[in-house]
Nucleic acid binder design. Structure first.
Lengths: 144, 144
DNA sequence: GTTAATTATCTGTATATGCAGATAATAGAC
DNA sequence: GTCTATTATCTGCATATACAGATAATTAAC
């Protein structure tokens, strides 16, 4: 039996396939980050703050393409663990600026090589060339 | 400034990119399915039951590559809405078999054209050829 | 300068997701 | 036949996700 590719079958739903791949791959990264107790989502958020400096919710939301309300709660998780903190300033009282704490930066330094190992392995197996192609297509599909 | 593609930067985390794309695309499908009040995840689950018939959690888990505990709760949502029901049988008392209810099939029939419209549009914009390629790569990355 | 429109964030609510560990039922070892 | 190992599912817990609507602060309109 040859299972032909029928793009109009729900099995080929673009959303389903993307979510499924994301689920599977996320577990690999979560496993790699386990020693520092970070999930891939948390690592991403921390990395965004470390690499781009203190930011407000809107900037993070734009950078990570994540709903602001989601960020409020995801940041709360990191905040409770003391990895980030507020950096208030007094130009616009509505704006909340968050930044990594010293502990947050320390954890990030520990997490980075763990993440690198997983990313490296992933790219080695999957292929760097292919990843460049896949990344391009993911970018494209986001705008379709 | 040319932003060169650095695959070892956290911005290029395979997990992050997949989740981001999945988030964005999911919203498109959710919008398309809004008239019947189904989310893309729920549509996928319902479709799996309609197309493959009554199944137990383990079979669904394998087919959708989703943790069994996740399915228990996702099925609960559909069950509360009366779209699926249990189809107990008495060979192995541990096994729970679920199937679509008449209402579930009715909703599915209403949802299918809505999903098809979104899928069609997605493929038209993104390109059918490219989707075949992307689907292949997503499959591959799941096994990397 | 007060009122209205806009903007940034948060809260309430609901779903999606999976790990650890519990429970119950079946199969295997002897 | 009993005891043990395995298997299928569920519960407790925690996080990820976003829509609708609330709140508070700023800006625009007049």
């Amino acid at each position: 039996m040859t299972t032909s590719f029928d793009p109009m079958s729900p099995v080929c739903c673009v959303s389903f396939r993307l979510r499924r791949a994301a689920r599977v791959v996320a577990k690999t990264y979560d496993a790699g980050l386990k020693p520092v107790g970070l999930r891939n989502t948390q690592f991403t958020l921390l990395a965004a703050l470390v690499m781009n400096g203190p930011q407000n919710i809107g900037q993070l939301s734009h950078a990570l393409v994540t709903d602001g309300t989601t960020l409020t709660r995801n940041l709360e998780v990191l905040s409770k663990r003391g990895l980030i903190e507020d950096a208030r300033y007094h130009e616009d009282e509505r704006v909340r600026i968050v930044k990594t704490s010293p502990q947050g930066e320390a954890i990030y330094r520990q997490a980075l090589p763990l993440w690198q190992t997983t990313q490296q392995e992933m790219l080695d197996v999957f292929g760097r060339e292919r990843w460049a192609d896949l990344a391009d297509m993911l970018q494209l599909v986001e705008t379709s």
